Computed example of a mutant assay.
Amino acid sequence: MTIVEPELRLSAQCALLGAIHPAIRLVKIKREGATIRMTIVAAEDLGNDAIDALSVAATEIVADFPMCQIEKQVIVSTDALPKENILAEGWVYQRLEHSIR
Rank of each mutant, 00 (worst) to 15 (best):
E7C: 05
E7K: 15
E7Y: 13
E7N: 14
L8K: 07
R9P: 00
R9D: 02
R9N: 00
L10T: 15
L10K: 14
L10G: 10
S11Q: 05
S11W: 10
A12Q: 11
A12M: 10
Q13V: 12
C14G: 09
C14S: 13
C14M: 09
A15L: 08
L16S: 08
L16E: 07
L16V: 09
L17A: 15
L17T: 14
G18K: 04
G18D: 05
G18P: 04
G18T: 06
A19T: 02
A19F: 06
A19R: 11
I20H: 08
I20K: 06
I20Q: 05
I20M: 01
H21M: 00
H21G: 01
A23G: 13
I24V: 11
I24R: 01
I24P: 00
I24S: 01
R25P: 00
L26V: 08
L26P: 12
L26A: 03
V27E: 07
V27A: 04
K28W: 08
I29G: 08
K30T: 10
K30N: 08
R31E: 01
E32W: 03
E32M: 01
G33Q: 02
G33C: 00
A34C: 00
T35P: 00
I36Q: 06
I36E: 03
I36N: 05
I36P: 05
I36R: 09
I36G: 08
R37H: 11
R37W: 04
R37T: 06
R37N: 11
M38A: 09
M38W: 08
I40H: 02
I40E: 00
I40A: 01
V41S: 04
V41R: 06
A42T: 06
A42W: 04
A42D: 08
A43G: 15
E44S: 13
D45F: 09
D45H: 13
D45K: 15
L46R: 03
L46C: 02
G47Q: 03
G47K: 02
G47N: 12
N48I: 11
N48C: 04
N48A: 05
D49N: 11
D49I: 00
D49V: 06
A50V: 01
A50I: 03
A50K: 03
I51G: 01
I51K: 14
D52W: 06
D52P: 02
D52E: 14
A53K: 07
A53H: 02
L54G: 03
L54E: 02
S55V: 04
V56M: 09
V56S: 10
A57M: 07
A58M: 04
A58T: 04
A58R: 08
A58D: 06
A58S: 12
E60A: 14
E60D: 12
E60Y: 12
E60N: 13
I61D: 13
I61K: 13
I61R: 12
V62W: 04
V62N: 06
A63C: 09
A63W: 11
D64F: 01
D64C: 15
D64N: 11
F65E: 06
F65R: 10
P66H: 13
P66Y: 12
M67L: 10
C68M: 00
C68A: 10
C68F: 02
Q69D: 14
Q69R: 15
I70N: 07
E71H: 13
E71V: 15
Q73P: 03
V74E: 06
I75E: 15
I75T: 12
V76K: 07
V76W: 06
S77W: 07
T78R: 14
D79F: 14
A80F: 03
A80D: 11
